[in-house]
Amino acid sequence: MSAVSEIQNAGNGAVGNRNIVVQARGVSKIFRRDAFEVTALDNVSIDIAAGEFVALMGPSGSGKTTLLNMIAAIDRPTSGQLLVLSEDIFLLNDEQTARWRNEHVGYIFQTFNLMPVLTAFENVELPLLLTNLTQQQRRDHVTTALRLVGLGDRMHHLPRQLSGGQEQRVAIARAIVTDPTLIIADEPTGDLDSHSATEVLEILKRLNENFQKTVVMVTHDPHAASYAHVVRHLEKGMLLPIGG
């Protein structure tokens, strides 16, 4: 029996017939360092429906980012099964996984991670260089993405010429320029002042509400979590029950 059918058979009633984007069943992740083993995730099961805005909260080392990385297919579980967009992404080879990420996932980092030698426009264009779009099509996509985050007038600025909030908005534009289904944000407001943080959260909310993007966000900040439909807590690698 394939992982897909196993998970579908085991699907819990909570999500019912909704279109499920992320289905995790018994996912564990154990890091081995020398003779020590650290359990980052312990038997985590979670369903995230399409169009949901989910916040993952928890103390440092609780496994939030590890779970996020697995959903984005940049890390692999030690055990358990994980379907993202109905695909068992860990059956894909490295090249296929990279393409899958490029097409389906937009990743927003806490520290922006823009290429310092590229302008805002070029940073946003970067993921599109892997597609078959023409130069004009790429230009249109980038312009649209940058306007959407309110940076239509900062296209040709280098990251060092932008404020932290503006850099993060460029990073959001880069994450959405390929029109992914899933937006993964790892503490996107962690390095921002409250004003910039609110701007970024408003953009994420708009992407979720107006463009039906599924957003999975890791945060420590209760204010940021208040933008989410669902808040899930992790502690010592275990996912606490809703409301737990």
Partner: peptide, 16 residues
């Protein structure tokens, strides 16, 4: 190194 990780996160394959 970090930029390489970012490029890979954006979907850049090994060959590229």
């Amino acid at each position: 190194t970090r930029e390489v990780a970012v490029l890979k996160t954006l979907g850049f394959p090994r060959k590229t």
